[in-house]
Design a protein around this nucleic acid. Structure first.
Lengths: 119, 119
DNA sequence: CTGTATCCACTGCGATACTG
DNA sequence: CAGTATCGCAGTGGATACAG
């Protein structure tokens, strides 16, 4: 329906945000600087993702213009993924969410403990 | 795993964000001002939500300390839901997402059209 | 190395019916 | 009015095998 819901559907995808983190340089010395990565690098970084999901998610991100897919015809073939400007701006937005999480999730957890104790 | 993922799991829920919008006063003359609502009001506002999902979502939000549930012992019983400070701050964070969506989702849609045309 | 294709188990949700 | 309980289907994702 509304544009927000479409974006939420995007962000709600478990792997979308993690890929954005990876390509956004999260965990590196300089978060916010795009870090091009190869398929296998991403696969290793996001331990637990299946090939199916990784490929599917990358395709959808490419379709949305959030990442670029570059094939280098070496042998064997090399494929690198990189955030576009659009993807980078979305990555920055998701960082706001992470910031909120870091600031407040222990509060939330505390509420949960209380709630569960009362039940 | 990380706190961000927990929050993402929360936000990814279709109805969570919509309830936050409703209780946050989205659509009212003054968005950002908490608007207490009754169960039936929410049900009407979020057309399409099943009772099961509405109740389930409200319970989880209450558990997380994001909304309060107040029972007034009238006949028949009246129940109102309202954002807590914590919930309000999360609501404001989700507005960042909505802002990004409004600014960029047409870009994304354009990319999709191009991509689909090429396929 | 970078995928694609297929099968399948699981769960999430809607619909429906019932209760205090 | 504000829920709870149960059922059944459909979509989602994991595992596996195969391919350029």
């Amino acid at each position: 329906m509304c544009p927000s819901r479409q974006l939420l559907d995007r962000i709600s995808d478990k792997w979308v945000v993690l890929i954005l983190c990876g390509l956004g340089g999260e965990g590196a010395e300089d978060p916010g600087t795009p870090a091009p990565m190869r398929y296998s690098e991403l696969s290793r970084l996001l331990a637990g993702v299946s090939q199916k999901m990784l490929t599917q998610t990358l395709r959808s991100l490419e379709r949305d213009g959030l990442v670029t897919r570059t094939v280098t015809p070496t042998v064997p073939v090399t494929v690198t993924y990189e955030l576009t400007d659009l993807g980078l701006s979305l990555y920055r937005t998701t960082r706001q969410i992470r910031t909120w999480a870091q600031d407040h999730m222990d509060d939330v957890q505390a509420h949960r403990d209380i709630y569960d104790a009362g039940a």
